[in-house]
């Protein structure tokens, strides 16, 4: 399939705004509709637009795969750590540690990074496998 100029320009101009919208959804998840999972998927679809329209080399240049994988693992570890911290402080598993909006804000950011990284990783490996078959 041949890549047209329209796809090139639109993807380059649109993907930063999708990423910005994803960050907004993650950070304002406790005030407006949205949250960790939704914002993370929006982040992943912005990265997916770069991957599909610009090719894997551009995505890897700005977001190296090792860092994405580390974000995935760190998200899971931090969530588990937040749960265990409440457990160790005697307040019960996953109990809030910070004053009211704090815990939800931090967990939103952790889950957003984790979901975005995970879906980007899945799509990157599938795309790479598809390119190798040709």
């Amino acid at each position: 399939m041949k890549k047209t100029n329209i796809l090139d320009v639109v993807s380059r101009k649109l993907s930063p705004f999708i990423l910005l919208f994803g960050i907004y959804l993650v950070t304002f998840g406790h005030i407006s509709p949205g949250g960790g999972f939704q914002g993370g998927v929006a982040l992943a679809s912005g990265l997916l637009l770069i991957l599909l329209a610009q090719g894997p080399a551009v995505l890897v240049q700005y977001f190296p795969l090792g860092r994405i994988a580390k974000a995935e693992v760190a998200g899971y570890g931090l969530f588990l750590l937040a749960g265990l911290a409440g457990f160790l402080l005697g307040a019960g598993f996953l109990s809030p540690l910070f004053p009211p909006p704090g815990t939800i804000f931090i967990l939103n950011i952790v889950i957003g990074a984790k979901v975005g990284a995970g879906i980007t990783l899945i799509c990157w490996y599938l795309f790479h496998e598809m390119e190798e078959q040709e």
């Binding site: 998840g29 406790h30 005030i31 407006s32 509709p33 949205g34 949250g35 809030p96 004053p99 009211p100 909006p101 704090g102 815990t103 939800i104 939103n108």
Partner: peptide
């Protein structure tokens, strides 16, 4: 209790 206006997130 949770400080979140968006009750789904809460």
């Amino acid at each position: 209790e949770t400080g979140a206006v968006n009750l789904v997130t809460a």
